[in-house]
Amino acid sequence: MTFEITVDGRPVPARPGQTIGAALHAAGIRAWRTTRVGGRPRGLFCGIGICFDCLISVNGGPVERACLAEARPGDEVTTS
């Protein structure tokens, strides 16, 4: 039932219907973004699309919320 996505080149398993944020969190990757000013690590916080802490980019697209983006097989996720 699981498939793979990559996060900054590293393979991460995901399940159908899971968001990229959930897949990352489940894989033990909890910090993936660095803030502009303080360079602080961030990952999921609200989990429901409210806080924008979890920003990622999928397949080279504009940044989006990992907790809303559904994982699809082969997605290449990059973090900043």
Partner: peptide, 22 residues
């Protein structure tokens, strides 16, 4: 703001919506 701190609703969403224990 440390990763690992979640809202209660966020932890619930992970569990109920995605089957992921926070």
């Amino acid at each position: 703001d440390l990763p690992g701190v979640l809202t209660a609703g966020g932890a619930q969403a992970l569990l109920k919506g995605h089957g992921v224990v926070a």
